[in-house]
C-alpha cells in the first residue's frame, strides 16, 4: 500500500509518467492484437512523433508562460517554413545552410512580431498569434505560386527520413532536444524565471523578474522550433502543400497537455511532451490499423483532448483551492482592489 502511495506522490511530481504508461499499454495491446506490431513499427511511430515533439516543445514554452497563452501561429509557421525551404534550398545540398538560416530567421521574425504584439502592446496571446497567422497565410499563398518545384536537398532528406541502425535520425534529434529542454527548464535561471512568471505574474514582477523578456523568449522559441520543424517536415514529405501545418496546431497543444504540462502555466515537462507525442501518433496509427474513417479519427482526437483536460482540470482546481485557503482572511483581496483603484496625481 505504501509503495502505491509513494508512487502516487512521485507521479504527482513526474507527471510525464502517465503519458509513458499510456504509450507502453497501447503498444503492448497493439503488439498482442496485431502480430505485425513490433519494435521496428514503433520506430516508425517515433519518426512521426518526432516532428510533433519539436513543435510541441515550442508550444510547451508558450503554455508555461501562463494566462492560457497559446501560440496559434505555429501551423502557419510550419507551412510557410516548408515553402521557404523549397524556395531557398532548391533541392541543392549547397544551399542547405541558406535554407537553415532562412528557417531560423523566419522563426525569429515571427517570434519577435508575436512578442511585440503580446508583450509590447499587451494584446492577448491568442489574438496576436491569430493575427500573425493571417499574415503568414498570405505569405504562404504567395510562396506557393513562386516555388520552382518539389525538389528536396538529399542531405536534408537523409536527416528527416534516415535511420542509424534502425533508429530514425529525427527521433535522436527530438530526444536530444527534449533532454536539452529538460536541462534548461530544471537547471538554468531562465527555466526558473519561466516557471515563476507562469505561476504568478504579479509575484514574479515584484520579486524583481522582468517578465517581458521571459514571455517574449518563450514565443520566439516556439516560432523558431516550429520553423525548423517545417523545414524538416517538408524534407520528410518531399515538398510542401497549403495547410500542411494545420494538424500540428491541435496536436501540439494536445501533446503539451497530455504530457502533464499545466495548461494554466508554471510547470512544464519536456519528457511528458515527448511521450504524449508518441501516444498521440500511436492513437492515430491504431485508428488507421482498425480502419476507422478519417472523420472518426478527428472525433477521437478531439475527445482525447477534452477528456484529458477535464481530468487535469480537477488537479488544477485542487491546487487553486489550496492556494485560496492558505490565507484564511479574504480581507486581503478586497483591500488590494480598493488600493488599486486610486491613482497618483499626474
Amino acid at each position: 500500500m505504501s509503495a502505491f502511495a509513494s508512487f502516487g506522490a512521485w507521479a504527482q511530481r513526474n507527471r510525464w509518467i502517465w503519458a509513458a504508461i499510456g504509450v507502453l499499454i497501447l503498444w503492448l495491446v497493439l503488439s498482442v492484437v496485431t502480430n505485425r506490431f513490433s519494435l521496428s513499427s514503433l520506430s516508425g511511430v517515433m519518426l512521426s512523433a518526432s516532428f510533433l515533439t519539436v513543435v510541441g516543445v515550442g508550444q510547451m514554452f508558450v503554455v508555461t508562460t501562463g494566462r492560457g497563452n497559446i501560440d496559434l501561429s505555429v501551423a502557419s509557421v510550419i507551412t510557410l517554413s516548408a515553402f521557404v525551404a523549397l524556395l531557398t534550398v532548391k533541392g541543392q545540398d549547397a544551399n542547405l545552410a541558406i535554407g537553415v538560416i532562412a528557417a531560423v530567421v523566419l522563426g525569429l521574425a515571427v517570434g519577435a512580431l508575436n512578442s511585440l504584439l503580446i508583450v509590447g502592446l499587451g494584446i492577448p496571446a491568442i489574438i496576436a498569434t491569430l493575427a500573425t497567422g493571417y499574415v503568414l497565410a498570405t505569405a504562404t499563398l504567395l510562396s506557393n505560386k513562386a516555388i520552382p518545384g518539389f525538389a528536396v536537398s538529399p542531405a536534408l532528406k537523409d536527416l528527416a527520413t534516415g535511420r542509424i541502425s534502425g533508429v530514425p535520425i529525427m527521433a535522436v534529434i527530438a530526444i536530444i532536444g527534449v533532454a536539452a529542454t529538460s536541462f534548461v527548464l530544471r537547471y538554468t535561471v531562465f527555466g526558473q524565471l519561466l516557471s515563476a512568471v507562469g505561476q504568478n505574474r504579479t509575484a514574479a514582477r515584484l520579486a524583481g523578474i522582468r517578465n517581458g523578456p521571459v514571455i517574449a523568449s518563450a514565443f520566439v522559441i516556439s516560432s523558431v522550433l516550429a520553423s525548423l520543424d517545417g523545414l524538416l517536415l517538408g524534407a520528410y514529405i518531399g515538398g510542401a502543400f497549403l495547410e500542411m501545418g494545420q494538424p500540428y496546431l491541435l496536436q501540439s497543444i494536445a501533446a503539451v497537455v497530455l504530457g502533464g504540462t499545466l495548461i494554466f502555466g508554471g510547470s512544464a515537462t519536456a519528457l511528458g511532451t515527448l511521450f504524449a507525442s508518441i501516444l498521440l501518433i500511436l492513437i492515430v496509427t491504431t485508428m488507421q490499423i482498425i480502419g476507422l474513417p478519417p472523420g472518426v479519427q478527428d472525433i477521437v482526437q478531439g475527445i482525447v483532448v477534452i477528456f484529458v483536460l477535464a481530468l487535469a482540470g480537477r488537479q488544477a482546481l485542487a491546487r487553486r483551492a489550496s492556494v485560496d485557503l492558505a490565507d484564511g482572511d479574504k480581507d486581503a483581496t478586497a483591500k488590494t482592489e480598493a488600493g488599486a483603484a486610486t491613482v497618483l496625481p499626474k
Binding site: S195, A203, V323, D327, T336
Partner: peptide, 16 residues
C-alpha cells in the same frame, strides 16, 4: 525589493 502582504495574489509561487 518588494515584500507583498497579499501573499496569494502577489507573493507566493504556489507550485514551488
Amino acid at each position: 525589493g518588494f515584500i507583498a502582504g497579499d501573499r496569494q495574489k502577489e507573493g507566493v509561487f504556489p507550485l514551488w
